[in-house]
């Protein structure tokens, strides 16, 4: 068997798992099980949210070490499911590296349905506005904000803008739109529209995940994710607070 190709595939699997938002322990466990399936020994995996290192000994006694860096992580549930199935299949059947490569190429070749994501932005922004006590006009404004935010964030991501700056500018934009809607008299208060559409930016899941990592014993990952969540929350608040101070008080 071509061990170089196989190890290359295993590294790609680890990197994709990390990039698409799998938990740290799942990345470590998956790589561990993949390597065990192919009779490698002395397997050690260490993963943090943007990096993992893998060292093992091949069946013929050669030591091997590799590491991968994944700078931009985002949750991608479809690929997570496909990768999970692939890992399960590999552990049971130990296929040839060529087959794994084919499957990996297939998973990565799926195109995103951008219309659906846009619809997601609109309806979740509008619905969470209603969830936090908004009336129908508030929800319409929140849906509009969601639509604008989708295109705005898309453009900023294309331009490789840092996530903190992106969140700051996006929250400034959304609170400006809500405050303008109040001034024009469409809605009576900006609070529920702002909180509803902020659900798109708020790092609630990042925070829960970081606490989970910390309690599970992955202190390094947990603390770094916690720092990220706090900084993103701070940039949201600075953006919204700035616009509120500039354009007419706190509603």
């Amino acid at each position: 068997m071509d061990y170089n190709h196989l190890l290359e595939c295993i590294n790609t699997i680890g990197k994709l798992l990390l990039r698409h938002g799998a938990e740290i322990y799942r990345v470590e466990e998956s790589l561990d099980r993949l390597c065990e399936a192919y009779d490698f020994t002395e397997i050690e995996v260490f993963a943090i949210p943007t990096y993992f290192a893998l060292s093992l000994t091949l069946p013929d006694g050669t030591p091997y070490h590799s590491s991968r860096r994944s700078r931009s992580n985002r949750i991608h549930l479809d690929n997570l499911y496909d990768m999970n199935n692939l890992v399960r299949y590999i552990c049971e059947n130990k296929p040839d590296p060529r087959y794994i490569q084919e499957q990996l190429d297939l998973i990565q070749s799926h195109q995103l349905n951008l219309y659906l994501i846009c619809v997601g932005y609109v309806i979740s922004s509008a619905m969470f506005c209603g969830f936090f006590g908004g009336k129908t006009p508030d929800m319409v404004v929140a849906g509009l904000i969601g639509l604008i935010l989708y295109f705005f964030i898309y453009i900023l991501e294309k331009l490789r803008v840092n996530s903190l700056v992106r969140t700051l500018v996006a929250s400034m934009l959304l609170s400006y739109i809500a405050i303008t809607a109040v001034r024009l008299g469409y809605i009576t208060q900006a609070q529920s529209s702002i909180t509803g559409s902020l659900m798109l930016l708020v790092p609630g899941i990042a925070m829960t995940n970081s606490l989970r990592d910390i309690m599970g014993g992955d202190y390094v990952s947990g603390v770094s994710r916690m720092a990220e969540a706090i900084l993103i929350a701070a940039s949201i608040a600075i953006g919204v607070g700035m616009m509120m101070l500039l354009f007419g008080g706190v509603y």
């Binding site: 549930l77 708020v202 925070m207 949201i236 700035m242």
Partner: peptide, 29 residues
């Protein structure tokens, strides 16, 4: 036969303290 994260990530959304984080930072600002 899917990872549990698929359901937890979506299922925890109404409970996750999104507006709490926002309120906290707003009071700080």
């Amino acid at each position: 036969k899917a990872p549990a994260t698929l359901f937890i990530v979506v299922g925890c959304f109404p409970l996750v303290p999104g507006s709490g984080i926002y309120d906290t930072m707003l009071f700080a600002v």
